[in-house]
Simulated scan of single mutants.
Amino acid sequence: MYGNASEPLLPTEEPLRELNSSPTNVSSSSCSLNIFDYQFTLIPVLYCIIFILGIVGNSVVVAVLCRHRASKTVASIYLFNLATADLLCLATLPFWAAYYSYGYNWIFGSVMCKVSSSVLSLNMFASIFFITCMSMDRYRAIVHPIRSQRRTLQQASVIALVVWGLACVSSLPTFYFRDTYYIESLGVNACIMAFPNEKYGKWSAGMAWMKNTLGFLVPLIVIATCYTWIRRHLLKAQGFEKNRQKRDRVLKLVAAVVVAFVLCWLPFHILTFLDALVHVGVVNNCDVISVIDAALPFGICLGFANSCINPLLYGFIGNQFQERLHHLFKLRVYQFSNRESSSSRKGSYLKDVETYGNCEKGREPGTAC
């Protein structure tokens, strides 16, 4: 039998609580219900900002990679899937922003509650898993360049399918348990995780610790290990000693990847872990629970912000990606000018573009015209 839907919904039941747990069973808690009104205005605004920036950045990445499918690489396959996962994750933000705006009242129906929650959970896992894959790919390419040449596009595609499969499996509990229930004390139809009442605490804690392990600890260990060995390799490499500026730039990018991952996801997973301790009764101090309730929305926002940072770290900073973006932008400018300019200007501009196109056809990969 599922938990009593008439039980009060704690403010810790955030839109992303399907990544964390579900509303606390207040029958086992002496803490009063604390709802922070600022969440209903501030959080939707933050979600909208993250949504706009993330959609723009990841859409550009997808557009550039689709435009240059002929020069597809293993790294570009992972980058495309990462951007796709981030886009799908960000696409659910308007629903959760509305959920906050209406005071935890889900107005989109039971099906959308289940689908939006499952898509969000699936793509959170997929995004983190693809960041891990890209870190391992960079390790092989820099530390073992000869061995990395054995990588094939088919292998990368199979790995991408496996990653999506693992993400789907990790999200099955969310798809099964997430649903809409009317919370009489608040007068809202909430989108919540409805675990079996008699084993509620164990289910909540188990889900939280699974996400801590699969969604943060394991990826963090792999990412940190890969970039530690990359740093050691670059510091020892004689070729990079001759070009210290280039080496330092690569090392800064390596550090930025690890720091961004930790800063974006560590607060959320710490709060997730503490909330799991609340559900199993290890933490029962009302002040601590109140701090968790107040801090969790911002931890969630930081996790979403990682989807905005990913295009910068894995796309726009790379020289090859910058060349492709410049090429795509130049073609778009030509197409616009071709419609707007006079016939005399068309001929002159067309000649320039044709010259650029001939150069593109004859140049070696990785070189500029």
Rank of each mutant, 00 (worst) to 15 (best):
S32K: 09
D37F: 14
N58Y: 00
I77Q: 00
A91G: 09
Y47A: 08
A97E: 08
S32L: 14
A97I: 07
F51C: 07
C31K: 15
V56I: 13
N58V: 02
R69M: 10
Y104Q: 15
Y38M: 11
F40D: 09
D37Q: 11
I52W: 01
Y100R: 08
S76R: 00
N58A: 03
C89F: 11
V61L: 08
R69G: 07
L42G: 09
L79A: 07
H68N: 14
A85N: 14
V62S: 09
V64S: 04
Y100N: 07
V64A: 05
A83V: 02
W106E: 02
I50M: 11
L79R: 14
I49Y: 01
I107E: 11
Q39D: 06
I43C: 01
I49A: 04
A97P: 10
V56C: 10
S32W: 09
I77V: 02
Y102D: 11
T92I: 09
G54H: 05
Y104L: 15
L42E: 14
V61R: 07
G103Y: 03
F95Y: 15
A97Y: 07
L33H: 04
C66E: 13
N58S: 02
K72T: 06
Y100P: 05
S59I: 12
W106L: 00
A98M: 15
R67C: 12
V74R: 03
V62Q: 13
A85S: 14
A97W: 06
K72N: 01
L42C: 15
F40H: 11
L82H: 00
S59V: 08
N105K: 02
I35G: 03
V56Y: 06
R69T: 10
A83D: 02
Q39W: 03
A75P: 01
L42F: 13
V56E: 05
L42P: 06
C66T: 12
I49N: 00
C31G: 06
Y104K: 12
N81Q: 12
G103I: 07
I43V: 06
A98R: 14
G54K: 06
I55Y: 09
F51Q: 09
G103W: 04
N81F: 15
D86K: 05
N81E: 14
V64L: 04
C89H: 05
Q39K: 07
F51S: 06
D37N: 13
